[in-house]
Design a protein around this nucleic acid. Structure first.
Lengths: 252, 252
DNA sequence: TAGTGGTCTAGACCACGCC
DNA sequence: GCGTGGTCTAGACCACTAT
C-alpha cells in the first residue's frame, strides 16, 4: 500500500523548466539583466540544450525574455501598451497619429485584400509602407492598400517618390468622409521584410491588425499592420482614453 | 566574371520548407485533408524530422494546419472571425452574448488584475468561469473577476453553486450602469486549465483579451479571456456590424 | 577572434487516439 | 496493438555581435 498517488500526469521537462525559470525571473533578475548562456543553463538544469531552448522560446513568446543572436538572452521589460483603436474615425496619416510614412509604390495586393477592396486580383493599387515607433523601438510595420479610384485626383505627373509620395496619397485619401472602420486581430509570423523593419528574425510571432476604412459606401482602403507580439499589448480604448497600465495579468 | 550573385543570404531549410508546404496546401490539398505523417514528409524532403516539425509548427501558428497527437496533421479551414468588440456597452452575460457560464467560486485574482480592480492583492473576489463556442468548437475560455463590492447585494446565504451561481453574479453585476470598457489584446500561451477547455496542449498560443468594465467611476469587473490563436481572428466592428469575411490576407 | 543564439541531424522513447 | 504527433538527447556547424 505504500503507493501514494505519484505523477499520474508526468509534466514535460521543458514545461517544468519554464515554470522554474519564470519564478527565477520574478525574484532573482532585474529587467535588462543578461542570463547565463544557453549551454550553461542547460548544463545547470541537467537537460539538453534543445530542451532548454523550448522553455526559453515560450518565455520569449510571453514577452518575458528577449534573445539576440551574438549577444545573449536578457530579461524583457513588461509589454508596452500600444493604442490601436483610439483614433476612431480618423484616416491614417491624420494629425498626431503614431505612424511614419516610409515609402509608396504601385503594386498588386494579396488576394484577401483585393477581395476586401473589391478590386480585381491583379489590379494595381497604391501601397504605402509605414512604420510605428514607440518608446524608441520599432513596434509595427504597415502596408496600406489604397485603390487608385480612392485617390483619383492623383495623376501620374505630380508624383514624387518615397515618403513624400506616401504623404500625398494619404492627404488625398483624407479628402473623403470616413464612415467607419472594421478591425481584425490575428496571430501571424513575420515575413522577411517585416522582420527586418521590426528588428526581429523572419518567422517571429506578430499580431496582424487588418483595418478596413469605409467611405462613400465602400472600402476606400485597407491597412495590414504587423505588431511585434513579444513587446506589444494592443489597447482598444472605448471609454475616452482612460489609461490601463499594469504588470502581467497572467502567471504560469 | 562567372560569379553571378549566389546565395548571399542562405535561407534556413525550415523556412524554405514552410514556403513549399504552404504552396502545396494551396494547390494540392483540400480543407480537412490529412497529410502524410511527419516521418514520411521528412524523408520525402530529405530533412530530419525536427527540421520538418519546425516548418509545421509555423504553419500551425498561422492557422494553416491542425495537428493532433494520435491522429495526424490536417489542413485547417480559414480562421473564423470571432466578434469581440461588438457588444459595446453591454455587461458580460447580457442577452445574446456568446458565452456560456460554467462555474463560479471565490478566489484571489492575479496581481495585475487586483491592481486594475484596486483591491488588495489577497482580497477575495468572485471568479466566474465561462467558455465560448463558435461553429461547434470551443474558441475561448474566460475568467471574470468581480469584486465582492460590485455585487454587494449577494449574501453568502442565497448562493447556489456552479453555473447557477455564475448567472446570479452576472445578473447582480448588470444592475449597475455600464460607463465604458477598455480592452487589450496580447499574445500568451495556454495554461493547463485553459488548454483543457480549448482542446489544445498546454503552452498552445492564445490571444489574451483583457477587458475592464467601468461603472460608477471605478473598475467594476475585469475579464481575462484566452482565445485559440490558431483558429480565431478577433474582429472589432466599429461600423455597425458590417461583416468582414474573406480568406487569408497574408502570404509567405 | 571569441562567444552568443540559430539551425540541423539521427536517433530514442513517450502519450494519445483509434481499431 | 499500432500509428500518430510530442518530448528529449548529444552532438555538429553556422550566422551574428562585440571586442
Amino acid at each position: 500500500m505504500g503507493t501514494t498517488q505519484l505523477e499520474t500526469v508526468p509534466e514535460p521537462k521543458y514545461w517544468h523548466l519554464k515554470t522554474v525559470l519564470s519564478e527565477a525571473l520574478d525574484s532573482e533578475f532585474a529587467v535588462g539583466e543578461i542570463l547565463p548562456n544557453e549551454r550553461e543553463l542547460a548544463a545547470r538544469f541537467g537537460v539538453a540544450r534543445a530542451t532548454l531552448r523550448q522553455a526559453l522560446e515560450q518565455l520569449e513568446l510571453e514577452g518575458r525574455l528577449q534573445r539576440r543572436r551574438g549577444v545573449g538572452t536578457t530579461v524583457a521589460p513588461p509589454r508596452m501598451g500600444v493604442p490601436v483603436g483610439s483614433a476612431q474615425g480618423a484616416w491614417p496619416g491624420a494629425a498626431g497619429d503614431a505612424w511614419q510614412p516610409a515609402d509608396c509604390a504601385p503594386g498588386t495586393p494579396p488576394a484577401g485584400v483585393a477581395r476586401m477592396l473589391e478590386t480585381h486580383p491583379d489590379e494595381q493599387v497604391h501601397i504605402v509602407r509605414r512604420t510605428r515607433v514607440s518608446q524608441g523601438q520599432p513596434v509595427a510595420a504597415e502596408l496600406l492598400y489604397v485603390p487608385m479610384s480612392s485617390v483619383a485626383e492623383l495623376t501620374g505627373m505630380d508624383a514624387p517618390s518615397g515618403a513624400a509620395r506616401a504623404r500625398v496619397v494619404l492627404r488625398e485619401l483624407a479628402r473623403h468622409g470616413l464612415e467607419g472602420q472594421d478591425r481584425a486581430v490575428e496571430l501571424g509570423s513575420a515575413r522577411a521584410d517585416d522582420a527586418k523593419a521590426l528588428d526581429r528574425l523572419p518567422g517571429a510571432p506578430v499580431l496582424v491588425v487588418t483595418t478596413r476604412f469605409l467611405a462613400e459606401g465602400r472600402t476606400a482602403a485597407v491597412s495590414v499592420a504587423t505588431y511585434r507580439a513579444d513587446t506589444c499589448r494592443l489597447t482598444f480604448g472605448d471609454s475616452g482614453g482612460v489609461e490601463i497600465h499594469h504588470g502581467p495579468q497572467r502567471q504560469a
